[in-house]
């Protein structure tokens, strides 16, 4: 394994599961901790694109996937040099899953222009969020017609059991 190569978490590790990092999570090797058989890994949240968590992992718990494009490696290097890079140590928990019913909890211009107002209910149509936003399809009552298929911030939604 080499720095900035892509890996996948092979085994469940209790310390990582507590951070929301489960087996099969993709990651990037950031640095090798000499003489320990461990790596500092940047894991990518599969439930929220753009979210990540940095953790120390034993090499035996990782599967090497391969190299990344040069552009991506350059951006990883720059990201890893940010002062707050190592502050992200756990995944943001996902409040929703696909096919959950949700209700819009706020009125905002970006939703209103799509015809969606506070109190309207919709269905979560994606497996994961992107930068904290979920794909929601809002439908009219009774007609079968959709009002909008839009990305909505997680904090603007409430789960309807």
């Amino acid at each position: 394994m080499r720095q900035y190569e892509s890996v996948k978490l092979k085994n469940e590790v209790d310390a990582l599961r507590e951070k929301g990092i489960d087996a099969d999570t993709l990651g990037v090797l950031i640095s090798h901790i000499a003489s320990t058989g461990q790596w500092v890994v940047m894991f990518l949240n599969p439930k929220n694109v753009g979210d990540y968590a940095v953790a120390t992992v034993s090499e035996r718990d990782l599967i090497r996937l391969g190299s990344l494009p040069a552009t991506t490696i350059a951006e990883i290097k720059e990201t890893a040099n940010r002062p707050d890079f190592f502050d992200h140590t756990f995944f943001l928990p996902a409040r929703f899953k696909e096919y959950d019913m949700v209700e819009l909890a706020v009125d905002k211009p970006k939703y209103k222009k799509e015809g969606v107002k506070k109190g309207m209910r919709g269905c979560v149509m994606g497996e994961y969020a992107i930068k904290g936003q979920w794909q929601i399809i809002f439908s009219e009552e009774g007609t079968g017609k959709d009002v909008a298929d839009i990305m909505v911030a997680e904090e603007d939604l409430i789960l309807i059991p």
């Binding site: 892509s6 694109v49 391969g66 494009p69 552009t71 991506t72 990201t79 930068k131």
Partner: peptide, 26 residues
């Protein structure tokens, strides 16, 4: 879009996630 491979799936997902952190247009 430069730097975003079509496949394999894991390579594209990682590239998009890093691009998101780096401020590329999603």
């Amino acid at each position: 879009h430069a730097g975003i491979p079509d496949e394999p799936y894991w390579q594209r997902e990682i590239a998009r996630a890093i691009a998101a952190l780096f401020g590329h247009c999603m």
